[in-house]
């Protein structure tokens, strides 16, 4: 794939070169190819929309950049204050540092611990970044309110909430800290109007402040005003796949 260069001349945040991902499924004795040789750039304050059919590797790309998945080959050069770090190859502890500090992953799925109050779940990233507890809670409540989570739910456990309410808690948590790079995995799926508006408002604000974003959206029209470029992913067709089919 040819390099997609950022047009705006914004200073680069991420430069992906030849990035490839496959899954070795040992028990099936086969390899699942997700994407091959991806190349693109993402600048400060830029927003890339990932497009492609189910199974084209959109979410896989986001998880590979976040390093929940390990790439097979290639680079993802991420520009930090300390210099350029290749996300494809960085040490695990360095990835952990970046996740705490500047790279966020926003998904529709709640990944909070059970038996922790919604407001604490949202406040946690701030607390871990050093904000005093009381202050973090005030901020957390502000975001829960913005996303339309009812006040009586704030001290309750999100694991008992409906899917939509859980997602709001998750979004408030993911967006409470200003990041430098946001990976968005269908964050608007199943959101009601209030929450969707709060999300788009927050993303708009973050983009204006220079946060780079790349994401998959079920309804791209939600974020139409934010999109700078699109990248189309295609599912890889493997020619010798017939060999793997049980006859």
């Amino acid at each position: 794939m040819d390099m997609q260069v950022s047009k705006s001349g914004a200073s680069p945040v991420l430069r992906v070169e030849g990035l490839s991902k496959q899954f070795e499924m040992h028990h099936l004795r086969r390899t699942l190819y997700a994407f091959e040789d991806l190349n693109f750039e993402l600048g400060e304050g830029e927003f890339i929309l990932l497009k492609g059919e189910n199974g084209a590797g959109k979410s896989t790309l986001l998880r590979t950049l976040y390093r929940s998945y390990r790439p097979r080959a290639g680079h993802a050069f991420y520009h930090t204050k300390e210099g350029v770090i290749d996300l494809a190859a960085a040490a695990d502890v360095d990835i952990a540092v970046l996740r705490r500090r500047e790279i966020g992953f926003v998904t529709q799925f709640l990944n909070a611990r059970p038996r922790v109050a919604a407001e604490e779940v949202v406040a946690e990233p701030l607390r871990l970044a050093g904000t005093p507890h009381a202050e973090a809670l005030v901020e957390a409540r502000r975001w829960l309110a913005a996303f339309g989570v009812k006040k009586q739910l704030w001290p309750a456990y999100p694991s008992t909430f409906s899917g939509g309410e859980q997602q709001k808690v998750n979004l408030a948590r993911a967006l409470i800290l200003p990041q430098r790079l946001l990976l968005l995995d269908e964050p608007t799926a199943s959101l009601d109007h209030t929450a969707r508006k709060a999300l788009v408002d927050r993303l708009t604000e973050l983009k204006a402040s220079g946060v780079a974003m790349i994401g998959v959206f079920h309804h791209p029209e939600d974020v139409a005003g934010l999109i700078d470029r699109e990248i189309h992913l295609k599912a890889i067709k493997i020619e010798d796949e017939a060999d793997n089919v049980v006859q």
Binding site: Q22, E24, R70, P71, R72, A73, G74, T80, E82, G83, I85, D86, A88, A89, A90, A91, D92, V93, D94, A96, V97, L98
Partner: peptide
């Protein structure tokens, strides 16, 4: 063995 990009030594973890 794993066919993945080898990992570097830590740089950001001071």
């Amino acid at each position: 063995l794993f066919n993945t990009v080898p990992r570097h030594e830590p740089r950001l973890m001071l």
